[in-house]
Amino acid sequence: MALTARWHGDETRWLALRLLPGEDLRAELEAAFASAREEEAMSAGFVAACCGSLHSAALRPAGRDEPLQVPGPLEIVSLSGTLSLDGPHLHMAVSDEEGVMRGGHLLAGCEIRTTAEIVLGLTGAARFHRPLDVRTGWRELDFG
């Protein structure tokens, strides 16, 4: 059976961010969630929307242990994932100037080229965390 967490929509706080050239996408998302945790006791979050551009991307595609460095310039086509007390789990797809797309886990080292416009949904009504799941060998999302 799937694990579920539920909360009322009015218990979600929306946070819009605009990142500037040179900022690191993952680091800024982690900092925004850490600030929301400290200031407003937010304990779970998710990426609702994102668009923008990068100088290059650092991704970890499925089945690969080492980072994949994708040279830019790049457009952020999609960013999705969760923000938890134990860290984020974020997936990103980017396209190059030919429209060729690459994707995987978002890693540190994705420098903003012109901007990144991001909307986060945050709540204190649920608690996201990532204990080790012995079935997968990975730290997977759990609710408390």
Rank of each mutant, 00 (worst) to 15 (best):
H55F: 04
C50R: 05
R139C: 13
R102N: 12
T123H: 00
W138H: 13
L107Y: 15
E75T: 13
V70N: 05
E117F: 10
C51L: 03
V100S: 03
M42C: 15
E75K: 09
V47W: 00
H89F: 11
F46M: 06
A116N: 03
D96Q: 12
G109Q: 02
P88F: 01
R135V: 11
G103P: 04
P67D: 12
E140G: 14
P61C: 09
H89N: 12
S43E: 00
R130S: 10
G103E: 04
A126D: 00
D86N: 02
G81E: 01
R64N: 09
C50P: 08
L90C: 10
P67W: 15
D96L: 08
S53Y: 03
G99W: 06
D86W: 00
L120S: 07
Q69C: 00
T114N: 14
R139I: 04
A62M: 07
M101R: 15
C51A: 12
E98D: 08
S80D: 04
A126Y: 01
E111W: 01
F143M: 03
S56K: 09
L132K: 04
V94E: 03
G109E: 02
W138L: 14
I118Y: 04
I76M: 10
T82I: 03
G72I: 01
L85M: 15
L106N: 09
S80H: 07
S95N: 10
G81H: 03
G63C: 13
